[in-house]
Design a protein around this nucleic acid. Structure first.
Length: 530
DNA sequence: CCTGGGTATAGAT
DNA sequence: TATACCCAGG
């Protein structure tokens, strides 16, 4: 994970610190690393989805650490991973494959009665499911801990937050295990924080400023540093055979220019170089520089750093390798933890409806669906239109003072891309993904689509009578979502066809089983599970 | 000297 | 799992 051997290479730049030095400050947390560590303690329970409290142990682990931070008067900001970007697909597939193999082995051992061997294997098979992440989100909400779900890479989101002022949601440092953060340009990262708050800190500026230390990066800039990272091998692109972190460093150091490094490399390696390495290299560098992130201030997707016109042209305006564009309403719903970023399904709150407490006073004072200004409707010339609504009325009206058809048409196109990214050739040609199926959510992604069995299990215990599920129907033009806040257990999506009046909204919402006259043009279809 | 593959071990309770 | 460390071959 991350940049191969980067942390070892950067050893001279680590300083042992205690997190109390960030007292009074906002600090970002890479949720994935703590979730994963926490899952060790209950890996078998999680893998087998056993009943009982044991499998919630990972939540204790996480909250323990959160409380450690709070004890030192630090304000934690938890950042979750979102969807996957195309160029990471092969890494994810490999992980998924390995975990599955381990799980199968574990099951075999278990059947043979070798419990200890089995638990060991289960530990290698744990993956963080969307359900787990979502459960944590519920707790964070009741504990009033700030969090955000990144549209794609959590690392990119963290890097972006690091660049913001505290007043705008910024953070001064981040706790993580992932060396990618340095490539993304995070100014301060604390690695390997233990349960007492001791950790290893790396400050990016010190890397570039240091005079005495070896390796020296005094003649490096951000781009060269990223180039070195990509050359050494990262999640988006594995390194050219024979090139490791040290070689990567000396190449970049010597030529001071990534294009020159590439051509030298091509010259020296000849046919040992992958055919499309240069292109992939450029894209990987561009991901670190210009990844798509959620901007909490404007509540929409932006680039970590805007793309220069020149780069845009050289990429033929094709940016989907960064992960497809998505409309603000979707990005917000994802960021707030209401929408699964890999499946685009609304999270159902079944599993949590019993324990979840309503702590927010400003919400649900009225039925938002009855208020005209909360509902954005845009008709296409055909027979469908878009509904966007939210029960956070003010936010929505501010965000979209004028509702234009065009805008929602664009949203529909964007959503379509999100849902069928592999129809895109850029994604297809990118690496050796064996099947051509729609984006398989990788195993280690916290929002990986939940297994069918899991869903059924959840339903069993539920108290609520009704929840809406969302499925995807092909060839769609309608987009609808209610980025509703956490408290509502009612429908999170609403779809309407032409001819249906706004007054019907409430009815729709309650009887979420809607027969779709117009399947051809509908993207989201709702039915109720009772 | 570097890379890359192999192996040991932490990390949870 | 993923990271650290060690050693062999280039």
């Amino acid at each position: 994970m991350g940049i191969k051997d980067l942390l070892r290479f950067m050893k001279p730049y680590v300083e042992l610190i205690h997190i109390k030095k960030y007292a009074g400050k906002r600090v970002g947390i890479d949720a994935y690393s703590w979730l994963h560590k926490g899952a060790y303690s209950c890996s078998m329970e999680l893998c087998l989805n056993l009943e009982g409290d044991k499998k919630l142990q990972y939540l204790n682990y996480f909250m323990h650490r959160i409380n450690l931070l709070r004890h030192y008067k630090i304000t934690p900001v938890v950042v979750f991973d979102g969807g996957n970007i195309p160029c990471k697909a092969s890494t994810e597939h490999e992980r998924h494959r390995r975990r599955k193999a381990n799980r199968d082995l574990a099951m075999a051992k278990l059947n043979e009665g070798e419990a200890s061997a089995a638990t060991e294997l289960f530990q290698r098979a744990v993956s963080i499911t969307p359900s787990m992440a979502h459960q944590l989100v519920q707790i964070l909400k009741t504990e009033k801990i700030e969090f955000v779900v990144a549209p794609y890479e959590a690392d990119a989101q963290i890097a972006y937050l690091s660049s913001l002022e505290a007043e705008k949601g910024g953070i001064v440092a981040v706790i993580s295990e992932d060396s990618d953060l340095l490539a993304y340009g995070c100014p301060t990262v604390v690695f390997k924080m233990d349960r007492y708050g001791n950790g290893e800190e790396i400050v990016l500026d010190k890397i570039f400023d240091s005079v005495a230390r070896v390796p020296s990066f005094r003649h490096f800039d951000r781009e060269l540093f990223i180039g070195m990272c990509v050359l050494a091998g990262c999640d988006f692109l594995s390194s050219v055979p024979g090139i490791g972190i040290a070689k990567a460093y000396s190449l970049v150091s010597k030529y001071q220019n990534l294009d020159r490094v590439l051509s030298i490399l091509k010259f020296e390696k000849g046919n040992r170089m992958p055919e499309d390495y240069s292109k992939s290299f450029r894209e990987a560098v561009a991901v670190f520089q210009h990844a798509r992130v959620y901007d909490p201030d404007s509540k929409r997707l932006i680039h970590i750093k805007p793309l220069p016109q020149k780069l845009l042209q050289s990429l033929n305006e094709e940016l989907d390798f960064l992960g497809p564009e998505m409309p603000p309403s979707i990005a917000t719903a994802i960021a707030d933890g209401n929408l699964d970023p890999t499946t685009m399904e609304a999270f159902d709150l079944f599993q949590n409806s019993g324990i979840h407490l309503n702590h927010s006073t400003s919400i649900q004072t009225s039925d938002p669906l009855l208020r005209q200004e909360d509902i954005a409707i845009s008709t296409t010339q055909e027979s469908s239109f878009t509904v966007i609504c939210s029960n956070e009325r003010i936010r929505v009206t501010e965000q979209k003072p004028i509702l234009e058809e065009r805008k929602y048409l664009n949203e529909a196109v964007a959503l379509k891309k999100l849902l069928f990214p592999l129809k895109d050739k850029t994604a297809e040609e990118n690496k050796t993904v064996p099947d051509k199926l729609p984006p398989k959510a990788p195993d280690n992604n916290p929002f990986r689509k939940r297994k069918f069995e899991e869903v059924q299990l959840d339903q069993k215990d539920s108290v609520t009578e009704q929840v809406s599920a969302v499925t995807v129907v092909e060839d769609s033009e309608i987009l609808c979502t209610t980025p509703e806040s956490q408290e509502s257990v009612n429908s999170k999506f609403i779809k309407m066809n032409d001819g249906e009046k706004r007054g019907k909204n409430r009815k729709l919402r309650r009887s979420s089983c809607q027969s779709s006259e117009n399947k051809k043009s509908s993207i989201l279809n709702f039915f109720s599970r009772v």
